[in-house]
Design a protein around this nucleic acid. Sequence first.
DNA 1: ACCTGAACACCGTTCAAGT
DNA 2: ACCTGAACACCGTTCAAGT
Lengths: 195, 195
Amino acid sequence: MDYPRAVPTVPPTNAEPLRADSARVRARMLRAARERLAAGDLELPMNAIAKAAGVGVGTVYRHFPSRQALLEALAAERFALLVDVAERAAVGPDVAAELARLLRAALEHQRADPALAAVLAEPDAARPETRELGEALTAAVERLLERARATGVIRPEITAGNLQALFCGLQHTVRVGGGTGTDRYIDILLRGLRA
Amino acid sequence: MDYPRAVPTVPPTNAEPLRADSARVRARMLRAARERLAAGDLELPMNAIAKAAGVGVGTVYRHFPSRQALLEALAAERFALLVDVAERAAVGPDVAAELARLLRAALEHQRADPALAAVLAEPDAARPETRELGEALTAAVERLLERARATGVIRPEITAGNLQALFCGLQHTVRVGGGTGTDRYIDILLRGLRA
DNA sequence: ACCTGAACACCGTTCAAGT
DNA sequence: ACCTGAACACCGTTCAAGT
């Protein structure tokens, strides 16, 4: 792919709220995109989304300057839920149980939302919101990890980066394996991380 | 993607050898495809390969009825190497060492050849040769596994399918993690599999 | 027999023209 | 300001026409 890169005509973050009609149009596009995702179309063709939402393609690009930006907007909600799980895990009482819970949540949210799986696997965020979510996730995982090291639930050399890469690998394993055996793969991973 | 499916005009397996010029043209296409892969283009556009190989697109399709078939043809050589490693591992003296060797080989061959990574992650083979390689791999892994269970190197409930899915997941983990830390991830996996 | 490449239906992305 | 949609450069795949 070596198309000329899109130049955003609108900053992806909007401090001031959108105009009511603009917000409505935006919601329509996101709904249309989600419907296609739910119907199993991971490609998210911009033209098709525009048509389904009843807007011109240009409007899709005005709101989401690239397909990556659209994916991130779609994933944002579940990404925030995952960060929430990680932050609770970081302060929960039983570190081992919290880590298991976090792995399970990472897997389940990626399964439920392919956009999140794509976003987590992509190192560079197109939107600043996504970068912030990623940093929040890393920070929470780091805090959980510090406690996990102290209790021997995780060997000291494992980093937050390792763990987040494993979130993605775990999801890929389950998907290639036909979507079954989640608990078994989580179990393998938890044992493997143990000191 | 809902294009009409290609109807192969030539069976993908050819019992009788290709005509000399046909074989030459085929080699040119594979070389062109490999050059693009090596240059980091995972897309393998059929038109571009045709042009690079100095043939018409139709000729590419005559030899490889779909992009998947082309990927599999590209991956075949390394896939066979991986099967070889697995078969040696199945009969090697030190089961734990053989398993580690196999994981390392799976990772390294997928890293060296993105086509192999794609083929291993895809459950349905386009070419019969690929299906045969897949069956040979499964058989070898199964034999290794039986011995590994007996010696406690792997817990009894792990299946050959689990292990092959983990080959793919492991590769994805390493890739998302920026390509480093291979040994650490292999170590995590081996510990996690242990009885 | 085998090959060519124009043609078709689709992409992502842009931007002049409208409201 | 915001939106539209024709237009452009690309895809995968087919198939009539050539040798």
